[in-house]
């Protein structure tokens, strides 16, 4: 069985789940295995189970236990390990969100099995092969796992969600939840509910060439128009022009959006590594020799302050 750990935040399924369901269903077809998901929490999970069905998942195991609220990564890990043992799953997938990457190592150690984090592709080549970026994306590695089950987290935006209706059989399961050593007591959004760069389809990003924090209005305007998140390079976050959670690069976040628009970013190797798995990159820079143009699908040589407002205007036209 391929088991997906559904990532629930504040009572809602995160967007990455649809991607992981899609990856799992495809792998299930490839390997002839059934696909199930498990939803864990204190209550109210059955309603969420239907969503999994939209992406072809046929079974949802629901674990409701008062001990699972507030969220505790170690209590969760123990419960997940229990479900894996109980179901005999051979492959376990979860979104490589901050939660997924925190919980799954604990699960892996509960079971003493291998875990592959931040997978961008999984396939069967006489055994599962997981592809994941290393060195912030400077290279990709193919990984094989010697344990069963094999655990993996799937990097957001690596799979395009494919809707395919299935009837979900909901099956409750009870587990014993140990006392938590760690508990999440509050979520403190610092970006005013804006989309995180790791989850965004489109990112509008600015670098030193933007010249100052006060110049970000035009990038935000373009981002709003596109439903995009805003990002930045390291010097920008170091200088406090933008909050650190927007920092993209080797010591910040690595991102894989459909479209990455780099404005006034020269393209230091650490930054380029962090955006290398973007599907499409547009760069605006006045220096035609800027290294960002070596990775950009479309490069526009020009002053960001001239070019970006025109991009906004043109997109507004085509979007009507």
């Amino acid at each position: 069985m391929i088991l997906i750990i559904s990532d629930i935040q504040e009572g809602k399924l995160r967007s990455v789940n649809a991607e992981v369901y899609t990856a799992a269903v495809a792998l299930g077809k490839e390997t002839g295995q059934p696909v199930a998901t498990v939803l864990l929490g204190a209550s109210g999970l059955k309603e969420l189970a239907a969503t999994a069905g939209n992406y072809g998942v046929e079974k949802a195991i629901v674990v409701e236990d008062a001990g699972l609220a507030p969220f505790s990564p170690d209590a969760y890990a123990a419960a997940i390990a229990h479900v894996i043992r109980e179901t005999g799953a051979s492959v376990v997938l979860m979104g490589a969100t901050f939660t997924g990457k925190d919980v799954m190592p604990r699960v892996a150690q509960h079971l003493d099995v291998a875990l592959v984090q931040d997978v961008i592709n999984v396939r069967d080549e006489g055994g599962l092969v997981f592809t994941r970026p290393m060195y912030a994306g400077k290279v990709h590695a193919d990984v094989r796992v010697q344990t069963s089950p094999a655990l993996a987290t799937i990097r957001p935006k690596s799979y395009k969600p494919a809707e395919q209706a299935a009837d979900v059989a909901v099956e409750p399961m009870s587990v014993s939840v140990p006392a938590a050593k760690v508990q999440v007591v509050a979520y403190e959004g610092s970006s005013n509910g804006k989309l995180d760069v790791t989850e965004a389809d489109i990112i509008v990003s600015g670098g030193r060439g933007m010249q100052g924090a006060d110049k970000w209005g035009m990038l935000e305007e373009l981002a709003d128009l596109l439903g995009a998140a805003t990002g930045c390079s390291r010097p920008v976050s170091d200088d406090g022009w933008r909050p650190h959670e927007e920092h993209i690069g080797q010591t910040g976040k690595t991102v894989s959006p459909d479209l990455y628009i780099a404005c006034g970013i020269s393209g230091a190797i650490q930054h380029v590594a962090g955006v290398s798995s973007s599907k499409f990159i547009v760069a605006v820079n006045k220096d035609p020799e800027a290294p960002i143009f070596k990775v950009a699908d479309y490069g526009i040589v020009g002053d960001v302050f001239d070019v970006v407002p025109v991009i906004t205007e043109e997109i507004r036209k085509v979007k009507g």
């Binding site: 291998a114 590695a141 193919d142 010697q146 499409f280 699908d297 479309y298 040589v301 001239d306 070019v307």
Partner: peptide
Amino acid sequence: PQLEITSYSYPPQKGERKLFENGA
């Protein structure tokens, strides 16, 4: 070890890059 890196590769090269030199 429980996992093995069987091969390393560079991220796939994408299609043709286009450079537009006339700004706005």
